[in-house]
Design a protein around this nucleic acid. Structure first.
Lengths: 121, 121
DNA sequence: CAAACATATGAGCATCTGCTCATATGTTCA
DNA sequence: TGAACATATGAGCAGATGCTCATATGTTTG
């Protein structure tokens, strides 16, 4: 069975099923935003990145320090930080040889804590 | 360079670097919770699932109707709904042959909207 | 019970992801 | 300038992911 085979009689009686679909789709953000949104949440969908974000919630940190604290390689952390930076969740500040990473978005803490509330139910 | 090779002198002077790491790790949720948290956010990290959640935000819907509205196969949607159910984001209610899915968590709307705020900056 | 309908599920496959390894880039200081 | 340090990055690989296709399960109705 593919997308167009659904017998609409299963749901409440609706005069024009196609128009309802359009109406529902019209009520949500545009397609492109939904992709961006999914990409944004992908950031939080990996435990390494979540750990990094939690660390940065306490204070800004350099790459090597994050790697040490999490017991991971500098390379792995650096790759993830690049991703976090692309997604504008962290920002950097160079001081000599070292580069400090810090959170760049105010929503992060509340998003994390709301997710945490969910899994703790 | 691996995790233990980092020369701690790059950061602020800290008396006992290892203890600081433990302290930072102690300030965040336990390892297992962080995995659960990442798994939770993984749900929002796919545009198909985000679309489903947005639809269910409007009203409960049956599988075939969701598939139709999104222009995807019944199978694809059913697989995703199973995942959403496992993660306790949706719940089901059978009425005869059809099964209605609805949101099962109050955090979903605010998590989605905070994510949306972020990408709209 | 058999046919029709709604949904669920397992296998298979192409793509994506997150790591490692080696190496490059950039900075400081002797 | 060259050595040491901090970070970035590209290639490659194993495992995860999201779909399709075929089929199974469950429900209603003739």
């Amino acid at each position: 069975m593919n997308a167009s085979d659904h017998d609409k009689s299963c749901c409440e009686v609706v005069a024009d099923h196609e128009n309802l679909a359009k109406e529902l789709l019209g009520g949500m953000p545009p397609e492109e935003d939904l992709y961006d949104l999914a990409d944004f949440f992908k950031v939080f969908g990996d435990s390494t990145r979540v750990k990094i974000l939690y660390l940065l919630l306490c204070s800004e940190m350099c790459v090597g320090h994050i790697a040490d604290t999490l017991g991971m390689t500098q390379s792995a952390i650096s790759h993830q930080l690049r991703f976090l930076k692309q997604m504008k969740l962290v920002s950097t500040q160079r001081e000599g040889k070292t580069i400090f990473y810090s959170l760049a978005d105010a929503h992060i803490e509340s998003i994390l804590s709301q997710g945490y509330e969910h899994i703790k139910e």
